[in-house]
Design a protein around this nucleic acid. Structure first.
Ligand SMILES: [Zn+2]
Ligand SMILES: [Zn+2]
Ligand SMILES: [Zn+2]
Ligand SMILES: [Zn+2]
Lengths: 133, 133
DNA sequence: GGCGTTTCTGTTATGTTATAACGTTACAGT
DNA sequence: ACTGTAACGTTATAACATAACAGAAACGCC
């Protein structure tokens, strides 16, 4: 059955990679239910959990959504820039921001773990569109 | 009726200030329903929206929860360090991290807006407890 | 191969967070 | 008082996430 599990993870990842924008777990569910009508949320969440663990997928905390990773560097050093107009997300590798963040938290004896670094705004192409309208 | 609205916001803020840890909107709902049994989620969310807008309350995106602000400086320049053991949240003013974050996003023409900077881990006192156990 | 143990999976049900929709109320300007 | 508008309360429902459990697969041992 680990064969099936791997199959599910690969299906989820494939669907995520087909998009440029983040998808919610339930978006994925609806998409995959066309092949497997009885598919349940739990199954999606389990696949997503593994994929996030292994660094193939980002979880966007401020959107409750997921997207395939397209980073060059380590997945846990990225800054996710989310366009509030079109929903597109840009990934930037930003090791120094993450290091600084850990350092600041450490100063009070806090033991740093998972970092969440996201920024909302408007992407370049949407900004141009705004000028034209 | 703006009197009622302000009253509600002040009630929500009061309850949040009584705690050291974040509360979900539904935590607040349950708390306030002892006085007003018919109180609905929407009302809480509207109050929270205003309070976040005016900088009295932080929204913790990675927890889907809220807490009263106890920052010294500007509310939108803080780093929130969340202890995964005890739930306590430390606020650190970290202007430089936020500036760097905006700069990185700007490099690709992204127009920066709201930033989300949170870090999970273990607070000093929970780290000590761990050693003792 | 047979058997117990462990881990993973599918399924059902439920819990939690958030918003849509719509009628009502307050209030300012006339 | 009349009207426009912004805020509000209320109901219902959508969206996100996990608990609980039973059954299947994988593994190690004999
Ligand atoms: Zn990435
Ligand atoms: Zn855009
Ligand atoms: Zn604060
Ligand atoms: Zn702690």
């Amino acid at each position: 059955m680990s064969k099936q599990g791997e199959q599910m993870r690969s299906n989820v990842l494939r669907v995520l990679r087909q998009r440029d924008a983040p998808m919610s777990a339930y978006d994925l569910l609806r998409e995959l239910q066309s092949d497997a009508p009885r598919l349940a949320p739990t199954t999606i969440y389990r696949a997503l959990e593994k994929l996030v663990e292994r660094g193939s997928v980002h979880r966007l905390e401020s959107l409750n959504a997921f997207m395939a990773c397209r980073c060059e560097g380590p997945v846990d050093m990225s800054v996710l820039a989310i366009c509030d107009d079109c929903g597109a997300v840009e990934e930037n590798l930003a090791t120094s921001v993450h290091e600084q963040l850990s350092n600041i938290a450490s100063q009070s004896g806090f033991e740093p773990g998972r970092r969440v670094v996201e920024i909302h705004g408007r992407c370049a192409s949407c900004t141009v569109d705004e000028v034209h309208s």
